[in-house]
Design a protein around this nucleic acid. Structure first.
Ligand SMILES: [Mn+2]
Ligand SMILES: [Mn+2]
Ligand SMILES: [Zn+2]
Ligand SMILES: [Zn+2]
Lengths: 138, 138
DNA sequence: CCAATAAATGCACTTCCATTGCACTTTTTA
DNA sequence: TAAAAAGTGCAATGGAAGTGCATTTATTGG
């Protein structure tokens, strides 16, 4: 708990009660979370607060946003030392069509992509959809 | 014009006036189009018709849907012989952050992605964002 | 060609999620 | 301790996808 506070402070984010709780919640989950997930977990808090908390987290490199193609934005904590930069921290995301969960495969960096002459890459998003480990083992 | 009609018939899609026009419109564009783009081009037609036309086209392998991360669904004609199948026709898409246009890079197939044990891939989406050829050459 | 049937189209409405304006509360600063 | 800044809550907005149903248009069989 105390570590979370100092961590947030290091990231230039004031550790309010809500923020610490949200961080804790995300740290305990191994999967990416949607705003609605957090909303259900913290029924006392307003959605706007959660929304803005995630935005603040993102702006300060605490979480990264995930577009897994479902149309619902997901969020996950960034790895230690991650600065969400291209050719460096970009990992792929996996979305399970069975359990509907999305995970960061942080060990799987996105391969270098060759582009035609004149194209400049600034960001890459790679999402694999299929059946996750949990679901395929049933 | 006549070729479009027979093409659509080959794809088991009745070549109505609207459908032929929409196909023609997309064929003349080298970039992916949003529903709103077609809507602006054919102000006489209702959005639902356009929406359902694209859906019909997609179901019959005439167009493929593109999720370029903008939150707005784009559509583009499929290549001849494309059947939108994994490990075969999956190409990458490029979204320009300057001109906001999205293009199919059909020559650039998505590389094979290694997944952890237990994961089964069924679909892959790879979107590169950056500056397109047109915009970088200015 | 005509009636019956099927397909396509148009209009209105709904849903879902992201986002914002503004007032209020809590914390920080001087 | 008063003023300022930051955080929070409520209500409303906006954009885009999707659907139900009535109407129009095309197809088919007699
Ligand atoms: Mn991730
Ligand atoms: Mn494409
Ligand atoms: Zn699963
Ligand atoms: Zn461009």
């Amino acid at each position: 708990m105390k570590e979370i506070e100092t961590f947030l402070e290091d990231k230039k984010v004031r550790p309010t009660a809500m923020r610490v709780l949200i961080y804790k919640y995300m740290a305990e989950k191994e999967i990416a979370v949607a705003l609605a997930d957090i909303e259900n977990a913290f029924t006392k808090a307003d959605r706007t607060t959660l929304y803005r908390t995630l935005k603040t987290f993102e702006e300060n490199g605490i979480v990264h946003q995930i577009d897994d193609g479902t149309g619902i934005t997901k969020y996950a904590l960034c790895d230690k030392g991650c600065n969400c930069e291209i050719e460096q921290d970009l990992h792929l995301h996996f979305h399970c069509l069975n359990c509907n969960e999305t995970v960061c495969l942080t060990k799987h960096k996105i391969p270098h992509i060759n582009l035609p002459e004149g194209y400049l890459a600034e960001d890459v998003n790679l999402v694999v959809k299929g059946i996750c480990e949990k679901c395929s083992g049933q």
